[in-house]
Every structure is written in C-alpha cells, then in structure tokens.
C-alpha cells in the first residue's frame, strides 16, 4: 500500500517534469519542431532562447495548468457541482475587463496589464461575495452562483463597451489577443510575479486535499463531523481564486482546463479529493505545457493558447459525455 502510494506520487511528479524537459527542445529554432541537443550545448543564440524565452514560458504554462486544474477541482467540490469552473465568480470577466481598462487608459506594458487584471479579478470576486451576502433567499452556494453570474455579466458588458470605444487599429487587436489567452510575452519577471501566490495557494489546496471531501457534504453533516464549514470553505475558495486571478492576469483567458482536467483526474483516481487533487495538478501541468507547445509551434505565428485549450478541452468533454464507458459524474 505505502509502496504503491510512493510510486504513484513519484509518477505524478516526474511526468510533468519529463514533458517539460522534452518541450525545451520543441519550437521553431533552428528549424520547425525539434532542436538537436548540440544546439543547446554549442549555439549561443539557442542557449539564450532556451533559458530566457522557452524555460520561463514552459514553467509558467505548467503552473497555469496546475493552478486552473486544482482551482477547478476545489470549486467543483465546494459548490457540489461538477460543472463549475474556476473563473465563474466574476474572476475571469473581471480580469478581462481590468486588462482592457489598462490597454485603453493606462498602458499596454505587460506588468501594468497584469496588475490591472489581477485587481479587477479580485474586485469581481469581492463584488460576487458582497452581492451574495445580500441576496435574501437560497442557500449560500446558490447565492454565490447567482451573484457570480450577475457580476460576470456586468463585467462582460463593461468589456463590450471598452471594446467598442477602443481604437480599432491599435487597441482593439491588443484587447482581443489578450482575451484569447497566450503566454508569448512571458519572461522570468512574469513568472516571479505569479510564483508566490501560486505556491502558497497550491500548497493550501494540496495540504487540505482530504478535508475538501468534508466540504462537499451538506452543511449539517459537515458540522456534525466537526468541520468549521464557513471558515474552511472561505480559505479554500480564497486560495483557488487567488491562483486563478494571478495566472489569468498573465496568460489572459484560458478556458476549459479547470473544467476538464478534474473530470479526467476523477476518472483515474476516483471521487476522493485526497487522490484526485494531486492527479489534477499533475495532469493540469502536462496539459498546460502540451497546449502551449502546440500554440507556439503549429503555425509560423502564434495561435492564442485559449483557442487550443478550448478546442482540445471541449473535444475531450464531448467524448467523455457521450462515451458509454465513461461516466461524467465521476
């Protein structure tokens, strides 16, 4: 049993590292697809490319996948609904609105766009929470869902106005490209910007992975098992939203990872969050790296990451929903 566990843990850690290691050699230099090892050893431009462009970008794509997958898994448990995804409490639309605000009125410099996106993502969540506190009917979960939908719609309308106001030759493409999601501009600085929040958030989620099960029970049952339902739910929700907000602020809107990866992880490891959360993190990292590999190598230009993740994610989702041997509720 313990031996088996150690082996599984090792596999979950080594698999993303292996994919990351291979991905270092994938790209369009010196020619499309694969870079020979000799280039990395002898070519100065190649080394520069790997260490200053590919490596921070690959690590960020891994963290992005990990964060969205883990946050999605947590939210599906907290909201007792397997179809919830991490951005739905106003976070994603808030980040989009914030990014557009910065592009229009402040500056298109990545750091300012990221800061503005993070600020509005957190504002979106805060607003959802505030409204939910004031809705006068329904349980806590229903109220959060309702206010999340309304707040997201308001930000999305605001984003519509900003797009309408934007200069169609310079600002509008910038906004649209940001919204489609991508990691083409990621540097070590961006990685350092998201790293503290991601490490703390993911650690909280990982350490509390078994207790997450208790939070998916009804309030009365969770209480009878000694759980401080409100406090523990808030902590895990805050961790999930924080990691989602920072990765979205750097990468733009990257959909479907948070929805589909926890489902696949549950198919592999069962409904117990103690096992499916680590699997989600590992698979999320792999999925993030591979999707970004595709985004930067498939065509001469860059394909926005959000398009790739949505295409592949929705494809897998459809297969899972219609295939006889797969049960979606797992």
């Amino acid at each position: 049993m313990t031996n088996h566990k150690t082996r599984t843990t090792l596999l979950l850690i080594l698999f993303p590292i292996l994919v990351l290691g291979i991905s270092i050699f994938i790209g369009r230099y010196p020619k499309p697809l694969f870079m020979p090892l000799s280039v990395l050893l002898n070519d100065e431009l190649g080394q520069n490319l790997v260490f200053n462009l590919r490596l921070p970008r690959l690590i960020t794509s891994a963290l992005l996948g990990m964060s969205l997958a883990a946050a999605g898994g947590v939210m599906q448990m907290l909201f007792r609904n397997p179809l919830v995804e991490p951005g739905f409490l106003g976070v994603t639309q808030g980040a989009g609105f914030g990014a557009a605000m910065s592009i229009l009125f402040l500056s298109t410099s990545p750091l300012l766009v990221e800061l503005s996106a993070t600020t509005f993502a957190i504002l979106g969540l805060g607003l959802s929470y505030f409204v939910a506190r004031r809705i006068r009917f329904g349980g806590w979960v229903l109220r959060l869902v309702l206010s999340g939908i309304a707040v997201s719609a308001i930000f999305s309308a605001g984003l519509g106005i900003l797009k309408y106001m934007a200069d169609p030759t310079s600002q509008l493409p910038e906004i649209v490209f940001w919204l489609l999601g991508g990691l083409w501009s990621v540097t070590w600085n961006d990685l350092l910007y998201i790293l503290p929040v991601v490490v703390i958030g993911l650690s909280i989620i990982y350490l509390m992975r078994w207790r997450l099960n208790l939070l998916s029970l009804s309030d009365e049952t969770a209480f009878s098992l000694g759980v401080s339902v409100g406090r523990e739910r808030t902590l895990l929700l805050a961790a999930s939203v924080a990691v989602t907000a920072v990765v979205v602020s750097v990468a733009g809107i990257v959909g479907w990872i948070g929805l589909i990866i926890p489902h696949i992880a549950r198919r592999i490891g069962g409904a117990n969050s103690a096992s499916f959360i680590p699997i989600s993190m590992s698979l999320g990292a792999v999925f993030g790296i591979i999707c970004d590999d595709l985004a930067r190598t498939l065509t001469l230009g860059e394909i926005p990451l959000g398009i790739i993740t949505s295409l592949i994610g929705a494809g897998i989702f459809l297969v899972m929903m219609t295939s006889r041997s797969m049960r979606i509720f797992r």
Partner: peptide, 18 residues
C-alpha cells in the same frame, strides 16, 4: 444526503473519522 461525486463506500464512511 445528496452526494454529487461518486465516492466509494469505504471512502465515504472514512469521512466519519474527521
């Protein structure tokens, strides 16, 4: 008890150890 996820019986009963 509405259980939205397909826990195995043993996993679910183990929650009683919380």
């Amino acid at each position: 008890e509405y259980v939205p996820f397909a826990y195995s019986v043993l996993e679910y009963v183990l929650l009683g150890r919380a």
